[in-house]
Computed example of a mutant assay.
Amino acid sequence: MGTMSEEIVFKVLKESGKPLKSAEIAEIAGIDKKEVDKAIKNLKKGGKIISPKRCYYAPAE
């Protein structure tokens, strides 16, 4: 996969079982929201995650 942040963000999303906002992901993961936003952008580009509704993210499976 990509960076450490991307792996953490993906793991948080997978384990949550529901779509989350980037601020929620940052809080759960304990990483900076800017890092989370960057990771989300890369994960979306790579098709790993989707955005089921505006500002919410979920794994693509």
Rank of each mutant, 00 (worst) to 15 (best):
I8S: 07
S16L: 00
Y57G: 10
I50V: 15
K33Q: 14
E7M: 08
M1Y: 06
K18R: 15
P52F: 05
V12C: 05
S51E: 15
K21T: 14
C55G: 12
E24C: 05
V36S: 05
K34T: 13
A23F: 14
A29I: 08
K48Y: 15
K18M: 09
S22N: 06
I50D: 13
K38Y: 06
K48N: 12
A58R: 03
G17F: 04
A60N: 11
I8W: 08
E7S: 10
G47N: 10
S16D: 03
Y57T: 07
K11N: 08
P59I: 05
C55K: 03
V9N: 00
I50H: 03
V12A: 05
G2F: 06
G17C: 03
I50E: 14
A29R: 05
S51L: 03
L13H: 04
A39D: 09
A60G: 07
K41I: 03
I8Y: 06
K45A: 13
C55I: 01
E61K: 09
I31A: 03
K44N: 05
A60W: 00
K53D: 12
I40L: 15
K41E: 12
E15K: 15
K48H: 13
P59H: 06
L20Y: 07
A29H: 08
K21F: 09
S51H: 02
I31R: 06
C55F: 11
F10Y: 15
K44E: 14
A29Y: 08
S16C: 03
I28P: 06
I49Y: 10
D37V: 06
G17W: 01
S5N: 13
R54A: 11
S16V: 00
E15L: 14
G30F: 03
V12I: 13
V12S: 04
A60L: 04
G47H: 10
A60M: 01
I8N: 07
I40W: 09
P19W: 03
E27Q: 13
E24N: 02
D37N: 15
K45C: 05
I50M: 12
K11I: 00
P52W: 02
E61P: 15
S5H: 11
I31P: 02
E61N: 12
E35S: 14
V36P: 06
